[in-house]
Simulated assay, not measured.
Amino acid sequence: MRNFIFYSNTININGNFNDIHTNRIDIAINSIIHAFFISNGIRKHINFNLFINNSDYRLIKIESNINTPWSKKDILKLLSLSLIKFNKKKIKNPFPGIYVDKIRFIDLLNSYKENNIYLLDRKGEYIEDVEIKNPVFIIGDFLGIPKEIKKEIKDMVIQISLGDINYFSSQVIMILNYYLDRMDYYKDYWDTSYKFKYG
């Protein structure tokens, strides 16, 4: 399984998003797109953990599921409704492949204690020099991972870097997927080309 943890400092946990740029939710949406979608296909073996730390904690976990009612255009609505259903009615599985909970970041990492947890950081060791095995990748938003969180998890993670260029979060995920593709690590996907027949 390919596991990603995206850390957001800004998304509203209430789920009331006026548009795609509200509290920079566009960064998370683009990251989700690059985690799951390929040209005319959806990757099968992805766990995407959207962790929100803004006034309170929320975790939206998205697992590969062909029955998830989404497309690239519907992710904002899907995230919004998932948070609203959890906040109002404590519905933890609002849609196929979508799970919502209130959980601390350290507890999320503890749920992956059987994995190797890699924190993307410019100060980390270059990815080509690290053995990537049974990975969980932590990617921060444009504000990064807070210093106090980094201090709390420093003994749980392996810091790795993609080099000396700062990439967008979504680009980091795309590069990681490409890297795992080269390793032949859970490359399967559902072919969705039948949805886009022309002529």
Rank of each mutant, 00 (worst) to 15 (best):
L180H: 09
G140L: 03
K150A: 01
E114M: 08
G140Q: 02
N166W: 05
L109K: 04
I149W: 03
K123W: 03
N110W: 12
I145T: 08
K150Q: 12
Y112D: 08
N110S: 14
F137D: 01
K123V: 07
Y118G: 00
D164H: 08
K187M: 13
V100D: 04
I127N: 03
D141E: 06
Y178E: 14
Y186R: 01
Y198E: 15
R104E: 15
K151M: 14
G140A: 06
I106Y: 10
T192C: 09
S170V: 06
R122E: 10
Y118M: 01
Y189P: 01
Y189G: 02
S193N: 12
Y118W: 11
K102C: 15
W190K: 04
V136E: 00
D121T: 06
I160L: 07
V136G: 01
D101G: 00
K102I: 12
Q159L: 14
E125P: 01
K133C: 06
Y185N: 09
I106P: 04
D141S: 00
I117C: 02
F196D: 13
M183P: 01
I160C: 05
G144R: 06
E152H: 03
Y99Q: 04
Y189D: 02
D129H: 15
R104V: 04
G124D: 06
K147D: 14
K195R: 09
I139Q: 06
I117K: 00
N177I: 03
D155F: 14
E152K: 05
N177H: 10
E125F: 08
F196Q: 08
G97S: 10
I103D: 01
K151W: 02
S111I: 00
K113L: 02
S193R: 11
F137P: 02
E114V: 08
I127W: 11
G163E: 01
Y112R: 05
K187T: 10
I160E: 00
I149R: 02
Y198S: 13
Q171G: 05
K151N: 15
K123H: 04
V136L: 01
I145D: 02
D188C: 05
Y178Q: 13
I138L: 06
K147W: 02
K147P: 07
K123G: 09
Y118V: 09
F105D: 01
G163I: 14
P146Q: 03
R182C: 09
N116E: 06
K102W: 05
E131A: 08
S111T: 03
Y99S: 08
S170P: 07
D141Q: 04
Y194S: 14
F142C: 13
Y194R: 14
Y178W: 11
I117Y: 02
F168D: 11
S193T: 06
G163D: 07
S169G: 03
K151G: 08
Q171V: 08
N177K: 10
K197L: 15
K133G: 05
I127V: 13
G97C: 10
D107P: 04
S161I: 13
I165L: 15
S161D: 10
Y178N: 07
N116A: 03
I175W: 10
Y167D: 07
D121W: 10
K113D: 09
K113G: 00
I158Q: 03
E131K: 13
V136P: 02
N177F: 03
F196L: 08
I127S: 11
K195E: 13
Y198W: 11
